[in-house]
């Protein structure tokens, strides 16, 4: 009797396992196409932007010297795209642009709340009260929260827990405080921790999203941002540029919008332009994409406030 009982339990367990396996297979079986993949070595960071698959443009914008040499191309429709818009990183100058107004606003907001609730400061700094250089390590895995945190999700989290306020990602308050937090790492090289398993798992998911075709146009990010696709080609009035070092200048002042915009808001706008459902900033898919993008900016300095 006992033997039979044992046997039936084993069968039940096997049957359950099979059912789970079939379900997983069904979920994975959703038909998707991928744009041809390029081998990216994440340990190279922004240096990968020198590869032909991404237009080999790094040489023209990698530092101030290179930019200075490439300056004559500004405004030239044939060559301007090779500068990857880095001449719009106006953090180098004393010249005013609206990005500075947002930064000022962010500093005011932060100081107001940090004075009222000192816990807001310690939460943002994870115990540290001096924020210098901290933003350069984002996105990062937070073992206490068991989550990948971006600067924006940290601001949202700390507003919730220390202030009982809703600074949702993509809101003006969140963007302004995030911009202020990032500005305290300006000119410091981005160092996303690629030795972290959680970060690399997220990177791989983000990389997969980068190549997966979605939307009515059946476009992937790579359709526009690799040379197999539209990178360096005229695309209506624009020329798509390299994804390398893009994460460095967000949140950025968008001239066409008249407002600052986070990287994930940019993803949302990009998706909509390619006739794909836009996801809310903070969505796990966008967080993975941000991790991928920021690893492609590793070793490149944080460059805020900027304008695009």
């Amino acid at each position: 009797m006992a033997g039979t009982h044992h046997f039936s339990l084993t069968r039940l367990a096997l049957a359950t396992l099979c059912a789970v396996a079939v379900n997983t297979q069904a979920a994975d079986a959703v038909y998707r196409e991928a744009f041809p993949r390029v081998a990216i070595d994440p340990s190279r960071g922004v240096a990968g932007g020198g590869d032909a698959d991404f237009g080999a443009t790094l040489q023209y914008w990698q530092d101030d010297q290179a930019l200075e040499k490439s300056k004559p191309w500004i405004g030239n429709p044939e060559h301007e795209w090779k500068l990857n818009w880095k001449f719009m990183d106006l953090d180098h100058t004393d010249d005013m642009h609206p990005g500075y107004l947002a930064l000022e606003q962010g500093e005011k907001l932060f100081k107001f709340w940090a004075k009222r609730e000192p816990a807001f400061r310690t939460c943002l700094g994870e115990g540290k009260t001096d924020f210098k250089g901290l933003a350069a390590g984002y996105p990062k895995y937070d073992p206490k929260l068991k989550k990948i945190m971006t600067v924006e999700s940290r601001v949202e989290h700390c507003a919730k827990t220390a202030l009982w306020e809703d600074f949702k990602q993509g809101s003006p308050a969140n963007n302004q405080i995030s911009l202020y937090f990032k500005s305290l790492s300006t000119n410091m090289p981005i160092k996303v921790d690629t030795s972290s398993t959680e970060i690399m798992d997220s990177y791989r998911r983000g990389e997969k999203l980068f190549y997966t075709k979605v939307g009515q146009y059946n476009f992937s990010c790579a359709s526009c941002h690799t040379t197999t696709g539209l990178l360096g080609q005229r695309f209506r009035g624009q020329v798509p540029t390299s994804p390398f070092a893009d994460a460095a200048h967000f949140p950025t002042y968008r001239v066409g919008l008249g407002d600052i915009e986070s990287l994930q808001q940019r993803f949302m706008r990009c998706n909509l332009q390619a006739r794909t459902k836009g996801l809310p900033p903070g969505d796990p898919a966008y967080t993975d994409l941000e991790v991928f993008y920021t690893v492609l900016s590793n070793d490149y300095p944080v460059s805020v406030p900027s304008a695009r």
Binding site: V214, G215, N271, R275, T276, K277, G278, L279, A285
Partner: peptide, 12 residues
């Protein structure tokens, strides 16, 4: 809002 086409979401 293009939600009738494939999107990047893990949950939607």
């Amino acid at each position: 809002d293009f939600s009738e086409w494939p999107c990047m979401s893990y949950t939607l």
